[in-house]
Design a protein around this nucleic acid. Structure first.
Lengths: 154, 154
DNA sequence: AAGAACAAGTTGCATCTGCAACGAACTGGA
DNA sequence: TCCAGTTCGTTGCAGATGCAACTTGTTCTT
């Protein structure tokens, strides 16, 4: 039986390869914050966005980073609990809250952001500057071509 | 304060970009098996390996696909439960079991493998043949450069 | 040939996640 | 103004996962 599926090889399947690379690199960096603080990947990402862009609402974080709102909500709660983030009422919408890093939160972000930058440089060095840029461009094209379904991420 | 972390932007962070692309594409294909059968990504991958390579032990699946043994164990249990996979004692090691798809399992793999192939072609079409190949090569280089830590994946 | 070290799989537990449902607040049209 | 329809954010719940501990069987060392 000449089945079309006979031609299928998981090792050549793009979603699989992407996951492999994503997991390998994420894990590599995860070691940096996991051992030091007990962060979740989501928590780290929320912090990274607030660190980079300053105060914003949970909704903004969702929109920018394509993280599901449930995850953001829980990450925010955890970061607040840890004293790294604080909430303030939004001036324009009483449902929303303006989120921002506390002094301690900014300090942690400064440290982890530095580590992240170094880690990223290491990865790019593996590929070479030119190929690294190519990869970034290809990934963006792919992610954009497959619009985030209902949910978003992970 | 000129902090090194100020230069950090999550949107340019390779692990982040890889995750975005991986999630978007995985989700896209997940719709195919999720709605039809209730598969987990891991279950689908285990099945894909058995479908492609025939009978092997859980350990082999771990080695080939870099999936953690716990996940494989549970996926195998679920697939067996669903009647898609069967176990047979290994001739050479009484701890291990030879896993293989049942007739029904092969039928399901034939269907999903076909869908996967079609989905992959769609993705590659977005990038163009040449860039798709480039991407595959870059991803392999990256994954190889960052050896899977203790665990493995997801 | 016996015991220590090691490998294959499974399981308990704590955590993370997705989805759907929810309360509260906002918005637009009649 | 008032009500239907949306949106922000949180929570309940069921399922998936990682890690460590464990059972059983194998291999290595001496």
């Amino acid at each position: 039986m000449t089945d079309p599926a006979d031609d299928f090889d998981l090792q050549d399947f793009l979603p699989y390869l992407l996951n492999q690379a994503a997991e390998a690199t994420s894990r590599g960096f995860q070691a940096a914050y996991r051992d030091r603080y007990g962060f979740t990947r989501t928590q780290w990402r929320v912090m990274a966005n607030l660190g980079k862009f300053g105060a914003m609402t949970a909704r903004d974080i969702c929109a920018i980073s394509h993280i599901e709102k449930t995850k953001v909500s829980r990450a925010v709660a955890a970061l607040e609990q840890a004293g790294l983030l604080s909430r303030a009422p939004s001036a324009t919408d009483r449902r929303a809250e303006l989120l921002s890093l506390t002094g301690q939160g900014r300090a942690v972000f400064a440290e982890l952001g530095g580590l992240a930058l170094a880690f990223d440089r290491q990865l790019r060095a593996v590929l070479g500057t030119e190929d690294a840029e190519r990869l970034v461009s290809l990934l963006r094209r792919l992610a954009q071509a497959v619009p985030p379904g209902a949910g978003a991420e992970d």
